[in-house]
Design a protein around this nucleic acid. Structure first.
Lengths: 352, 352
DNA sequence: CGGCCGCGTGTAATCGATTGCATAACTAAT
DNA sequence: ATTAGTTATGCAATCGATTACACGCGGCCG
């Protein structure tokens, strides 16, 4: 009754061949004769045999699995990248392990465990804030697995990287506001130590500079990429006497929280303020107003990162020098930005 | 230079003990003497040893991994459940493999592969639409792994199940509209063959019946749980002469698409129409207007499902009879619903 | 003093699949 | 006809960790 799950031995016995032949019949069919192949297939069917991946992994030293480590699965930005990764991995026969990264030693230890325990053949890191030193150490250890960093960048790390053109995209988003006649432009920041957030700020400042403006410190609102932080930032905005007429938000989520906070106090977008977001989340076209935003090619990003990682996993020499793919984001103009109405009221941004 | 990754053998040699002792020192420290334990720890440090999970899995016939199969990772509803699952699993030392389910044989074959290849010790299924027959077959095979179904239900399957009170919650959502004086109430449906969607419709109809009303077929708008389908449904709404004054939407995503579609044509919520959604997505409180919705305890759902699964994995007898946990959803009243203004205009829903 | 118990450790089998090497049966070439 | 090469298969080692069983040693009890 309680018979054990059939192994390759059972198949071999049934088909009257050796286990070696069964193995070959299954993984390299052209190496066995047609007759044997048929007998083995029949035996597999009859016994209900399925591969034991642990056995194979042990012998082949490969788990046919990649590990995706990300800061927050709930974030729709990441989840759609994860989706693309999973599709690509599945297409190439790999499974996907996910690992939520929080702060703290415990998390890093877990990451390390995964990396070095032969559970995964490669790591796809969607977070640049992991301790670089540790990561380097890990990746230099004997038996370490290949790493690809996506979305964020770990400077000078030598890891393969796939990301979007944050600086340039942020500059173009800001330029859009400038083109609409805005001169008093603020920024809703991302997390303080986040590389991507900084790049977007850099692009923002760059575009301002190009127009003879420069950032006004009070108009750089602290944010954290999430709705709540945008919502809080709105309170600070409201308490200010001198307000910007336009905002470039580091991402759509915080942009939505920000607009929501403003609206509670009667500040209506785009009538009273223009706003450009970043990401083009699914909700962006359906928000009120539909959001003008920089669309990141999330599918492509996830797919290409997974491709690159699996390429390296299967042939460590495949890519040669560290890869660096930069994908271009695209401005999607909707209704959250409007031409600056009438004359500029109050002081403009300080001239640089 | 290119030395291989250290194994338990290396540690044993270094510490001058047998591999058995090393293994014991690491997994059941109380079985070895203090001195040995120290020597082994030192040897582990010195050699840089890390466990090879494949070896352990092979011997112990357990992968310390659970498989989560879901219809769409991008859906924020699922991704936050996945998040909770991952946390619980991590806390208990399990890794999480994710598998996107699409339609088609290929997908099911992959699911089967995973289930039977010892890559995972258990399956957490977040989708009731997987072929029941196949699932039963798989789960009856020798060596099959435990299955817990979450969110959706597979009737008569005998699987452990964790879900929310869809029928009752839908009824309460609808009752809220009734309490506000609405009599002309429509429903934005979920996918036609989706169990959850049907349950919500049932609850909707039940509440109407309780108020002496019954569903008006033309007011049941086809939907698909996603924004686009809600958006399309809005077009149909607009083309109708006799319109409902309130809508119960099967979920928040489609609700947002619906409101967005209406707004494009000047129909404003809650002025012209009231709407209750379902899920309480992160964006719900920040939408315009903030959405009245049934909040599903997503964290709890994911956590409890993972708990139950791991319990069974670790002790197949742990739960005894098939478990069925039903979590209660909670109505969150925000601003998308308003008291029916003035007298009832036009025909009410047909009396039952 | 002899026997029993328990602790700490080692020996070796085991988990399931893959694969290097050997072998046998043919084919082709000289 | 002999040699070389090819093809199909089997034998047995191997991957790394766990664990059943055995053993030696010291202490305790009768």
């Amino acid at each position: 009754m309680e018979r054990k799950t059939p192994t390759i031995q059972d198949v071999a016995r049934f088909a009257n061949v050796s286990t070696a032949t069964v193995s070959r019949a299954l993984s390299s069919p052209d190496k066995v004769s047609e007759g044997t192949r048929a007998r083995v297939s029949e035996a597999v069917r009859a016994t209900g045999y399925t591969l034991n991946q642990a056995g194979r992994s042990l012998r082949q030293r490969s788990a046919k699995t990649i590990l995706v480590a990300l800061p927050d699965i709930r974030n729709p930005f990441f989840s759609s990248i994860l989706d693309a990764i999973e599709r690509e991995a599945a297409a190439r026969g790999y499974g996907v392990l996910v690992l939520n990264l929080y702060f703290g030693h415990e998390t890093v230890r877990r990451l390390q465990d995964f990396l070095l325990s032969n559970r995964a053949d490669g790591l796809l890191l969607l977070d640049g804030s992991v301790d670089t030193y540790l990561l380097q150490t890990i990746s230099n250890q004997a038996g370490a697995i290949p790493i690809v960093v996506a979305c964020e960048e770990i400077p000078n790390s030598g890891f393969h990287t796939v990301l979007t053109d944050n600086v340039d995209a942020a500059a173009r988003a800001t330029q859009h506001l400038i083109d609409l006649g805005h001169r008093r432009i603020g920024h809703l920041l991302g997390p303080e130590h986040n590389v991507v957030a900084r790049e977007r700020f850099t692009g923002f400042a760059k575009a301002l500079a190009g127009a003879g403006l420069s950032p006004v410190p009070e108009w750089n609102f602290r944010g954290n990429f999430d709705m709540e932080s945008g919502f809080s930032a709105a309170a600070r905005f409201l308490s200010m006497a001198e307000r910007p007429t336009a905002i470039f938000a580091a991402n759509d989520e915080s942009a939505i929280g920000f607009l929501s906070g403003l609206r509670q106090h009667g500040i209506i977008c785009p009538r009273d303020i223009s706003l450009v977001g970043f990401d083009d989340l699914g909700v962006a076209p359906h928000y009120v107003p539909p959001l003008t935003t920089m669309r990141q090619p999330r599918e492509a990003l996830g797919r290409m990162a997974a491709e690159a990682l699996i390429d390296v996993v299967e042939d460590p020499e495949a890519l040669g020098a560290p890869l660096r793919i930069v994908l271009r984001s695209e401005l999607v103009v909707r209704e959250s930005t409007a031409r600056m109405a009438g004359a500029d009221m109050g002081e403009p941004n300080r001239s640089s």
